[in-house]
Computed example of a mutant assay.
Amino acid sequence: MGPERGNDEQWREKLTRDEYRVLRQGGTEAPWTGEYVDEKRRGVYRCRACGSELFSSDTKFDSRCGWPSFWTPLAGDRVRLLSDDSLGMQRTEVRCANCDSHLGHVFYGEGWDNPDDARFCINSISLTLEPAEDAA
């Protein structure tokens, strides 16, 4: 089965107004307000729109930026990276490869101690945590 693109009406029915604003319209939740900013449980983070597995808690780290941060997705083909020059700056947008929902942005070269010196800065509202069975 191909990627779940859906139409606008279907997304409006499935998602809350805030989820739709971020996932389908490329919005951003306010810093420090998302449910996963300080989340420590082990598990897999899925796309809130389509359920695709995107990130592991094993790659989540505290970047103190106000949004959940990961140093890599589960696999490179789980996300799409797009050039974003909105807001007068050059950034790289992160989208779900399955349903094309906006997740956040990735930043490189900030001095993080991970293999790619990467920070995938992802909106909590774009994710759903599936805790590991042994997660406390």
Rank of each mutant, 00 (worst) to 15 (best):
G2Y: 04
P3G: 15
P3A: 14
R5S: 10
R5F: 12
N7P: 02
N7S: 10
D8T: 11
Q10A: 15
W11G: 02
W11I: 01
R12E: 03
R12Y: 00
R12G: 05
R12T: 02
E13K: 15
E13H: 04
E13Y: 00
L15W: 00
L15G: 02
T16I: 02
T16C: 12
R17F: 01
R17A: 14
D18I: 01
D18V: 01
E19T: 02
E19Y: 00
Y20R: 02
V22E: 00
L23K: 05
Q25P: 01
Q25N: 11
G26W: 05
G27D: 09
T28G: 06
T28V: 10
T28A: 03
E29L: 09
A30D: 09
A30G: 00
P31V: 07
P31S: 10
Y36K: 07
V37Q: 06
K40M: 11
R41Y: 05
R41T: 04
R41V: 04
R42H: 13
R42S: 15
R42Y: 04
G43D: 08
G43E: 09
R46F: 01
R46E: 14
C47E: 06
R48S: 12
R48C: 04
A49I: 05
A49W: 00
A49C: 14
C50T: 03
S52G: 03
S52Q: 15
F55A: 04
S56G: 13
S56T: 07
S56M: 04
S57G: 06
S57E: 12
S57R: 00
T59E: 00
T59K: 08
T59Q: 02
T59R: 12
F61Y: 15
S63L: 01
S63T: 08
R64T: 05
C65T: 15
C65N: 04
G66W: 14
W67E: 10
S69K: 08
F70I: 09
F70R: 07
F70K: 03
F70H: 05
T72K: 15
P73K: 05
L74C: 11
G76C: 08
D77P: 08
D77E: 15
R78D: 14
V79G: 06
V79D: 08
L81V: 11
L82S: 13
D84Y: 09
D85F: 05
S86E: 13
S86G: 13
S86H: 10
L87R: 14
G88P: 12
G88M: 14
G88R: 11
M89T: 11
M89R: 11
Q90I: 10
T92R: 13
T92M: 08
E93G: 08
E93A: 15
R95P: 02
R95V: 09
C96A: 13
C96E: 10
A97N: 10
N98E: 12
C99Y: 12
S101K: 05
H102Y: 09
H105W: 01
H105C: 12
V106F: 06
V106I: 12
Y108K: 06
G111M: 09
G111N: 05
G111A: 08
W112G: 12
D113A: 15
D113V: 02
N114K: 08
P115C: 03
A118F: 04
A118C: 07
R119Y: 10
R119A: 03
I122C: 02
N123K: 06
I125F: 03
L127S: 01
T128R: 15
E130M: 07
P131R: 02
A132G: 03
A132D: 14
E133C: 00
D134M: 00
A136V: 10
